[in-house]
Design a protein around this nucleic acid. Structure first.
Length: 283
DNA sequence: CAGTTCGCCTGGGGGC
DNA sequence: TGCCCCCAGGCGAACT
């Protein structure tokens, strides 16, 4: 479940590996992967293009090519894997190979494979746009969580009249982009705010605390290569280490690292949520 | 318009 | 060992 820090980690790895590399051809074996066109058009549109620059917005990866913009969302389990040649893919065991849904054959003989066991990930291809942030896929996506221009005032205004729990509000990508289930729990713990608090009940000071916690936690996690629980890895074998810094998320039966009382596990908006009932007061 | 539910997917784990 | 069911969860569509 890559969130902003994990997507950033993947992006850095791909930039390092693919910058200025050409695409000879692309083979799509799971048509639904291509979100905004037929797979044949997607394959044709990528032919002879080169990876020129690499960006992230929220949980989206953006690749600027010569005259196309390619956008990818890994959702839960999507991964980009780089192989030295086609034979390496052919030699994979069936249970590995069956989850590869796209292969980019690169001009230097390497292969960029997209593997996704649950087929939730999506890719979008567009004619190159002057500013990639104007791409249609970002129409309903808010500012990135670590965007310096995002202010507490802005969050306060967007939360006005919103009755949903603040945790659900933080997960709403149209409000703020890049936060997922793991970091939402960690951000609210650091901010000492109950995830159940209605979003509209938070003060300007509360939003400032959330913004400060968001920036410090996402940056620290990115610095450690992200969080590896369950399946995240940036290249198929190496993961991040921020899971060792988690204070509440996933801590079944654990005590609060601040006050020692028992952490609570509950469900908010259909998602597992961990918090400290003592440190995190409801607003 | 705000909020809720469902469908998409598969592997892993618990219960028996 | 095998079978069934539940769970994980981001996001868009469809609904109230």
């Amino acid at each position: 479940m890559p969130e902003a820090p994990e997507v950033y980690t993947v992006l850095c790895h791909l930039e390092d590996q693919l910058r200025n590399t050409g695409i000879e051809s692309v083979t799509i074996t799971h048509p639904r992967l291509c979100a905004n066109m037929e797979p044949e058009a997607f394959e044709a549109g990528l032919q002879e293009q080169h990876f020129r620059s690499f960006h992230r917005h929220g949980k989206y990866l953006v690749f600027e090519l010569d005259d196309r913009d390619l956008v990818a969302h890994l959702r839960m389990e999507g991964k980009f894997l780089i192989f030295s040649n086609q034979q390496e893919i052919d030699c994979l065991e069936e249970k590995e190979r069956r989850h590869i849904h796209a292969v980019f054959h690169l001009e230097d003989g390497r292969c960029l494979a997209y593997r996704d066991t649950r087929k939730f990930g999506r890719m979008y291809l567009y004619p190159r746009t002057a500013d990639w942030k104007d791409l249609p896929v970002f129409t309903n996506i808010g500012k990135d969580a670590v965007d310096e221009s995002l202010s507490a005032q802005e969050l306060l205004q967007k939360a006005a009249r919103r009755k949903i729990p603040v945790k659900s509000f933080l997960l709403d990508q149209s409000v703020i982009a890049g936060i997922g289930n793991i970091y939402a729990d960690e951000i609210l713990f650091a901010s000492r705010i109950s995830p159940l608090s209605p979003a509209s009940h938070l003060s300007l000071e509360d939003w400032q605390a959330i913004l400060n916690a968001t920036r410090s936690i996402l940056k620290a996690a990115a610095g450690q290569g992200g969080t590896t629980i369950r399946t995240f890895s940036y290249d198929g074998s190496h993961g991040g280490t921020y899971q060792n810094q988690l204070k509440v998320h996933g801590k079944d039966g654990a005590d609060c690292p601040e006050c020692g009382c028992s952490l609570i596990r509950t469900r908010i908006g259909g998602r597992s949520t961990w918090y400290c009932p003592d440190c995190q007061k409801e607003r």
